[in-house]
């Protein structure tokens, strides 16, 4: 079964996305802080990370690099945020984030993107 990690500081955001992603049938794990998100990512193997935490990617921690250096394939990374600051978005893409989606998001669009991403993985 595919594993998805949802990492948001807001519980309501986690609940909203859980409601959207429930029909996929993937195993959903939750992290409420960027620290617990990094810990979970380095400990387990996930197919997809959906997060609103941007600091681990552009804060100089090279999280994507650390995930790539492991023996297991790195998870696809979707960042969902209320941010619309263009330089920050560019920095996110440069640091290895696969998709940036802004809130409020369309449930159908997110579902389609997640399914496509999971199907494209080996």
């Amino acid at each position: 079964m595919r594993k998805i990690l949802l990492s948001f500081s807001s519980l309501t955001a986690i609940e909203s996305l859980s409601l959207v992603l429930r029909p996929i049938g993937a195993s959903l794990s939750v992290a409420q802080s960027s620290e617990s998100m990094i810990e979970a990512l380095l400990r387990d193997e996930y197919s997809l990370l959906i997060t609103s935490h941007i600091a681990p990617f552009i804060g100089g921690g090279d999280l994507v690099g650390r995930l790539c250096r492991r023996s297991v394939p790195r998870p696809s990374i979707f960042v969902i945020s209320h941010l619309r600051h263009e330089p920050t978005l560019l920095a996110l893409y440069e640091s290895g984030v696969d998709q940036f989606i802004s809130f409020p998001l369309s449930p159908h669009r997110l579902l389609r993107k997640v399914v496509e991403e999971l199907q494209s993985r080996p």
């Binding site: 996305l17 998001l105 369309s106």
Partner: peptide, 12 residues
């Protein structure tokens, strides 16, 4: 509260 949260996060 639920309506507020859902509206802020999802175009639902």
């Amino acid at each position: 509260e639920a309506l507020f949260s859902l509206t802020r996060h999802l175009s639902l």
